[in-house]
């Protein structure tokens, strides 16, 4: 828990790794991607997260199916459909991995700290990070809300004996709940001490961070130069 014990990796390094990882994925050859997929899969299963692994694989398979339908005739399948599928699957899994390992809050605080050091205590930075925080709080809740609302509406229709077709009826409550929640959250965060000009503390970068950044620079640099015969 980075909130209780020092995190060996600086939050900004995690953010940077996320971006660099996406770039590296687009540059890498399919064989490397296949190898990385196995590696990430292995990490997931070693951590006992079979569910996440299976979901990622299923998502990848569905995406693969769509790509297979969409791939352009005359272009080698390997270059278009399959490769894009593998890349997207890896991206999703990589993001899930970082999401699971790091703390979003620490990452956002580090971004805010870094930007405010450069731009001064700019309110726009504070509001930008607040929006990111609210977005992170919304996404998981929204999915849960839709599930509950649909269940409730089905229950009420069953009780009233009506079967009116209302496919988008969950939208209003989800949106209203979203607006209200953003109000509630923004108010709560204000009372909890958030101010747009505040400078949240962040950890200092260590040797490990330097090594990770260096590794990414090497990986992308080598990929760009096509060495050693990656393409």
């Amino acid at each position: 828990m980075p909130e209780l014990t020092p995190d060996p990796v600086h939050p900004l390094t995690r953010v940077l790794s996320l971006g660099a990882g996406v770039i590296a994925l687009y540059l890498a050859s399919p064989w490397w991607l296949f190898g990385w997929a196995l590696l990430i899969g292995g990490v997931f299963t070693r951590r006992g997260n079979w569910r996440g692994f299976t979901r990622a694989l299923l998502g990848g398979a569905v995406f693969g199916g769509l790509q297979a339908l969409n791939h352009r005739p005359g272009v080698p399948y390997w270059d278009t459909a399959l490769m894009t599928t593998i890349r997207f699957t890896l991206m999703i899994m990589g993001i899930a991995l970082i999401y699971g390992r790091g703390s979003w809050l620490s990452m956002f605080s580090a971004i805010e700290h870094g930007l405010k050091k450069i731009l001064g205590r700019n309110k726009a930075v504070g509001y930008g990070v607040l929006t990111m925080l609210l977005g992170m709080a919304f996404l998981p809740r929204m999915v849960e809300d839709v599930r509950r609302i649909r269940k409730d509406q089905a229950m009420r229709q069953s009780l009233a004996g009506t079967h009116r077709f209302r496919p988008l009826s969950f939208l209003r409550p989800v949106l209203v709940e979203g607006f209200l929640r953003s109000d509630d959250l923004a108010e709560a965060l204000w009372s909890r001490g958030w101010r747009p000009t505040a400078l949240p503390p962040t950890s200092s970068a260590g040797g490990l961070d330097g090594m990770i950044v260096f590794a990414w620079v090497m990986v992308i640099g080598l990929e760009v130069h096509g060495w050693p015969m990656w393409h």
Binding site: D145, R148, D152, M155, F170, P173
Partner: peptide, 12 residues
């Protein structure tokens, strides 16, 4: 019929 702990999600 269920009335949930948080009624807001039922007020659609």
């Amino acid at each position: 019929g269920l009335v949930m702990q948080n009624p807001r999600l039922q007020l659609t």
